[in-house]
């Protein structure tokens, strides 16, 4: 019998929210993931590790759903999550997906495009997360991002 939603781990919520078999976005799981990550002290750190792993999935639909979770949480989960996403520890994982030197040659095009889009939106929406701007500028300089 499945544990009641309240006690389910962040991992089970992200697995349900990014399941490649989902016919459409699982907004309830996405919402629950956002709420739960904010409740635990280590929530933002664990959430970014889980998201990085999903975003690096070779399965396009799984990675795109993970990016939707990331975008939703960046809009709803507040400062603690922003500062965790705004660390190179997480940004480097996104960079690996778009960079040909790492996963870029195998990663799905749609996923790479979405990563660049969300990073760009954060440079506008979160100007005080300066590392995001640094990472984005570096990608532009290296020609990984062609605007």
């Amino acid at each position: 019998m499945a544990a009641p939603p309240e006690e389910e781990s962040l991992e089970s919520h992200i697995n349900r929210a990014t399941n490649p078999l989902n016919r459409e976005l699982e907004w309830e799981s996405i919402q629950t993931f956002c709420e739960k990550l904010n409740k635990d002290l280590e929530g933002p750190q664990l959430a970014t590790r889980l998201l990085a792993h999903k975003i690096q999935s070779p399965q396009e639909w799984e990675a795109l759903q993970a990016l939707t979770v990331l975008e939703t949480c960046m809009k709803n989960c507040g400062k603690r999550f922003h500062s965790e996403v705004g660390k190179f520890r997480f940004l480097n994982e996104l960079i690996k997906v778009v960079s040909p030197k790492y996963l870029g040659t195998r990663a799905p095009e749609k996923v790479k495009l979405k990563i660049v889009e969300v990073m760009y939106s954060w440079t506008i929406g979160l100007p005080d997360e300066t590392k995001i701007a640094d990472a984005y500028q570096m990608l532009k300089k290296q020609g990984v991002v062609k605007m």
């Binding site: 603690r80 660390k87 190179f88 520890r89 940004l91 960079s99 790492y102 640094d134 990472a135 570096m138």
Partner: peptide, 15 residues
């Protein structure tokens, strides 16, 4: 006791 959130980080990946 609430531990202070860890704000250690890595360097930016060079591509």
């Amino acid at each position: 006791a609430t531990s202070f959130p860890d704000d250690s980080d890595e360097d930016l990946l060079k591509v």
